[in-house]
Design a binder for these strands. Sequence first.
DNA 1: TTGAAGTAAAACCATTTGGTGTTATATAAT
DNA 2: ATTATATAACACCAAATGGTTTTACTTCAA
Lengths: 108, 108
Amino acid sequence: MEAAKHDVFQAIADPTRRKVMRLLADKELPISEICSHFTISRTAITKHLHILSEAELISGKKIGREKIYSLHPEPLTELREWLSYYERFWNNKLSMLKYYVEEAEDES
Amino acid sequence: MEAAKHDVFQAIADPTRRKVMRLLADKELPISEICSHFTISRTAITKHLHILSEAELISGKKIGREKIYSLHPEPLTELREWLSYYERFWNNKLSMLKYYVEEAEDES
DNA sequence: TTGAAGTAAAACCATTTGGTGTTATATAAT
DNA sequence: ATTATATAACACCAAATGGTTTTACTTCAA
């Protein structure tokens, strides 16, 4: 489970992990506080935190006996970029234009 | 595996499925043609197509003995909306504004 | 009508996921 | 020094994933 192969796509696939991200988006929190928002066991939460850490979406710093987790949204850019490919389907003029430019460049 | 519980987040978690989506973004294709872009078995591809269908990201119509799949990017809006929550981290003025408006509305 | 092409369905398998409980270790407070 | 708190580390389990091969069913074409 701790293998270095969890990417952002897999990390956000689970609703519990997405909820954790939302919690941390507002402010950094210790594990115990995160757990208080769920009914599942602390161990389960810890595993989700590990997966999010592997994807580098969160990081934890130890302060005293507490471990405080905070969000690092940078890897979400990969998702944004992936999504942008499909933006041409939402008749967004700008992205449509960008798509055609790319197409033209590919052919040159 | 065919349970009606595959959402868009899970569907895009797999790199094979993302590649299939890219293929279908350009034009609709029969299964055999999709398979030609991969080394894994046709059966494996079929399973991925089922998962994408459940998430309503693709659909297949049977023409003669072939089944032609095409992309339906609409469910990606759920992903876009989810992502938009984190846009405030990329100092995008507009989404920052939208975020503060939401916050204000929540408190009223 | 016989055969090939295209897909579907079934049975199977190894690994991963998402969860549990128990035990251990480090820190803070009395 | 002892006890309570916060987390980490194990061992375990059921179900889902991602893959395989084999078998069967349609449909087109010679």
